[in-house]
């Protein structure tokens, strides 16, 4: 569904990346031609293209999930070359070296910092192809009937918990569990999350007895439960499963919250992989 926009966006990025050396070298070569024709009086102005190329490089670096600080600072040097008077031969040499540097950086950016742009910045509407997406898809049928209000509660409970706002997460979980029409496994997930949030809020340890999912909910669990003789791990896994089930419910039932759920993917992935 998102393949075509992704391809178009990637093509746009490739063209922009190719434009960096074209602008940088092209501007210097044009500058030489204009100088020879007597049109350009100061060779420093031939660095205008390099400056634009460096701005473009910084833009490409900024819109990546991993920021490249070297590429981000190149406009500073481009600006200095543009405004500083310099002799003809030194100017040409400096600009060509700078153009070569920008070309190297754009190649480095492409291969070391990925070709894709920042998911959040480009308003993607799908989860990345990770085990999380597989899990969310696997729960679609069970959670498809959930009302948007239930989805909203699930979304808020997950997000408050991720932000460390445990009091609010507990309150929203309570509201979610009491909401009429919420499927039973989801009621249990809200209950488990509420208990964990209240314990975390008060910095209390694991109680001897705690809320659990039922064996019948096994198909909805993202993570398998550990052996019965590991209560600490079981307690943590219950919380992870509750959070991931709520994330999935929020994804299916509260479409308006999808951008923020996408932004919270790293936390959900962390829970799934822990």
């Amino acid at each position: 569904m998102t393949d075509k926009p992704d391809k178009l966006r990637n093509n746009r990025i490739y063209y922009l990346e190719a434009l960096v050396p074209v602008l940088a070298f092209g501007s210097t070569l044009s500058g030489i031609a204009l100088w020879e024709a007597g049109i350009l009086s100061e060779i420093q102005y031939a660095a205008a293209g390099s400056f634009l190329a460096s701005c473009l490089l910084a833009y490409l670096a900024w819109y990546r999930p991993r920021k490249d600080i070297v590429s981000l600072t190149t406009p500073l040097y481009g600006f200095i070359f543009l405004v500083t008077p310099i002799d003809y031969y030194q100017g040409i040499l400096l600009q060509l070296f700078y153009a070569a540097g920008l070309t190297t950086l754009v190649i480095r950016l492409h291969f070391r910092f990925g070709a894709g742009a920042d998911d959040r910045s480009h308003g993607r509407k799908e989860l990345a192809a990770t085990p999380l997406r597989t899990y969310v898809e696997s729960t679609r049928d069970v959670l498809a009937g959930l009302e948007p209000a239930g989805g909203r509660n699930a979304s808020m409970a997950f997000l408050y918990f991720a932000e460390g706002e445990y009091r609010k997460a507990a309150d929203v979980s309570h509201a979610g569990a009491c909401h009429e029409g919420t499927p039973e496994p989801l009621v249990r997930a809200f209950g488990i999350l509420r208990q964990h949030a209240e314990l975390l809020e008060k910095n209390l340890p694991r109680p001897v007895t705690y809320q659990k999912f039922l064996p019948a909910d096994a198909a909805l669990m993202a993570k398998p439960l550990p052996a019965a003789d590991q209560p600490d791990r079981e307690f943590d896994t219950m919380m992870d499963n509750a959070l991931l089930l709520l994330y999935s419910a929020a994804w299916h039932a509260s479409e308006a919250d999808r951008p923020i759920l996408i932004a919270s993917q790293p936390f959900a992935n962390k829970l799934l992989e822990a």
Binding site: L159, F161, A162, E163, G164, Y166, L200, N203, D236, A263, S264, P266, F267, K270, A274
Partner: peptide
């Protein structure tokens, strides 16, 4: 400061 567990620290907590 709010006491948290290490594993629960994530990007949503930046600035907390």
């Amino acid at each position: 400061a709010k006491t948290v567990r290490v594993r629960l620290i994530n990007e949503s907590m930046i600035g907390k």
